[in-house]
Each structure stands twice: as C-alpha cells, then as structure tokens.
C-alpha cells in the first residue's frame, strides 16, 4: 500500500492535488472555528459589499460575511460528500465482492439491482428522495449513496473476478485454501486499490451532487451555510456582485479536480506498481486498449 502511495505521489499533479485536499480538510475541520465573523449574523449597514479588508470576500444581500459563511459551510459540504461515499461503498462494494462467490442467483439479482440503480435519473432521484422523505441531510446522503453504489459494485466485482480466475488462486485452491483465505490473501490486494481509486473519484462526484442539492436548497435548508447555498445566494445578486461566485466556485472546482487527479494518479500507480518495467512504446499500446469496447 505504502509503495503505491509513494508511486502515486511522484506525479506533480498528484502533489498539487494532495496539497489542495489538505487545505480543504483543514477548512472542513477548523473552518467554523477560525471564521472571523458569525456566519449567521446579519448586518443591514453592509449589504452586498465588495471585498474589503474587513470582509475579505464581501457581504451578501443580508449583510452576512461571505468568507465566514464559506468557512462555516465547508464542514457540512465535505462531510456530506464523504458520508454518501461511505453509503455507496457499503451498498456497492460488499455485494460486488460477494457476487463472485455466492453463486449465480445472488449474482443475477445483484446485477439487476445495480442496473436498476443506474437507470434512476441521477439528480432527479436525489431531489425526489430527499424532498419526499423529509428534506434532511441523511435522506440526501442515502440517495446519493444509492446512485454511486453501482460504480463501487462494478470495480469490486471486476477486480475480484480477474483474481479468482487467475492461476495462482486456482493453485492455492488446489492446495486446499478456503475461499475466506483466498479473499484475505489475494483478492483483497486487487480489490483494495480499485476501491481506493473509485472512492477518490466518487467523492468528487458526490461533492458535485451535494453542492447541486444545497444549491437548490434541498437536503440542507438555508440559512445554514453550504458551498452550493453560497452560489445560490450569489446567483440572485449577480448584477450587484458579479465577482461573488468566483471564490465559492473555485473551491468546489478545485476540490473536485484534486480528487479526480488523485484518482488518476492512484490508478496509474496501481497498474504500474509490481509490474515489470515496460517500454514507452509498449505502455502506449497497453493504454490504447479501448475501455468497454
């Protein structure tokens, strides 16, 4: 695991990505504490201000300090994305692994369930489920978790399938290895990196969905500050503060980009690590294999 991480971090883009993620993690943990103003405090004297020394990112239409709201909103935005990934991981990876071992009926049923999850329209379903079931953060997280579960199911199942049909696993079984032992010893080594890559990219995806939901005022209800909610407020005041959305948008884009870059670096590192060194020409040929064709 360590060598994979080290290999992944050799890429400059991965270094930048980890840097960004550390900053975001700091914001999420300490943001509400270091916020210079009360994120809920309204001030009718300073409405819709531009950036000043006092208010770094200006104030919104109720005179609230935007910088403080951005900091205070970090925790819930990041946590919501991470929690929905955990839901997706449990709902997807576990059946994905078991589908390889629990026989064809279980396999068929889980495949059809995942197909059904995929046919659910992404944002519409998240909105419908959250709004109909009480408009809370928990409902939103479960909805997003259901939507991203098929991604986890697919990669886990694919990784487990390739290992369980490999010769060294067959050899181990001939020597009397139990399924549990094979899973712990061999399958896990292939499945874990695949899950790590998917976790990174799905955290980015669910951050976008959670931001979209909060942008619409669903799941987390205003005045509680969120990244998406900040953008919604800015949208109403574009003519007075056209620069308003820039920083919240950059924070969202930066985080999503960092997560995707990290996923790419991890993917490269896990496919390269442990394999014999290949020439540039050979690697290009290997990469040229079309996905899903």
């Amino acid at each position: 695991m360590i060598d994979v991480l080290r290999a992944a971090l050799r890429l400059p883009s991965a270094k930048i990505a980890v840097g960004i993620l550390i900053v975001i993690a700091f914001l999420a943990i300490f943001g509400p504490l270091v916020a210079p103003f009360d994120p809920y405090a309204q001030n009718s004297k300073d409405l819709l201000q531009g950036p000043t020394l006092e208010h770094w990112l200006g104030t919104d239409d109720l005179g609230r300090d935007v910088f403080s709201r951005l900091l205070a909103g970090s925790t819930v935005s990041v946590l919501a994305a991470m929690q929905s990934v955990v839901v997706g991981l449990v709902l997807g990876a576990l059946p994905g692994l078991l589908s390889v071992y629990l026989g064809r009926t279980f396999e068929w049923i889980t495949l059809r369930i995942m197909d059904s999850f995929i046919t659910l329209p992404f944002l519409v379903f998240a909105i419908a489920m959250t709004a109909l079931l009480g408009n809370g953060l928990t409902q939103a997280m479960v909805a997003v978790g259901i939507l991203i579960a098929p991604a986890f199911y697919r990669v886990t199942r694919a990784a487990a399938l390739t290992v369980s049909h490999s010769q060294y696993v067959e050899a181990a079984q001939l020597f009397g290895a139990t399924t549990a032992w094979v899973v712990r010893k061999h399958v896990w080594k292939k499945v874990f990196p695949a899950i790590a890559v998917t976790t990174a990219s799905m955290t980015g995806a669910s951050l976008v969905i959670v931001s979209s939901l909060t942008f619409l005022g669903i799941g987390i209800v205003p005045p509680e500050p969120t990244w998406g909610g900040l953008l919604a407020t800015d949208l109403g005041n574009l003519y007075q503060r056209p620069f308003g959305p820039v920083v919240p948008a950059l924070v969202i884009i930066g985080t999503v980009w960092a997560l995707n870059a990290l996923a790419d670096a991890l993917k490269d590192a896990t496919t390269d690590a442990g394999a014999p060194p290949v020439s540039k020409q050979k690697r290009r040929e290997l990469q040229a294999v079309p996905h899903g064709a």
Partner: peptide
C-alpha cells in the same frame, strides 16, 4: 470536472 451550475453562473 466543471459542475453545470458553476458553468451556468459563469456564462451569465
């Protein structure tokens, strides 16, 4: 990686 709502606001 650009969410549609960010692009929309930028375009406006």
């Amino acid at each position: 990686t650009l969410p549609p709502f960010v692009v929309s606001i930028g375009l406006i």
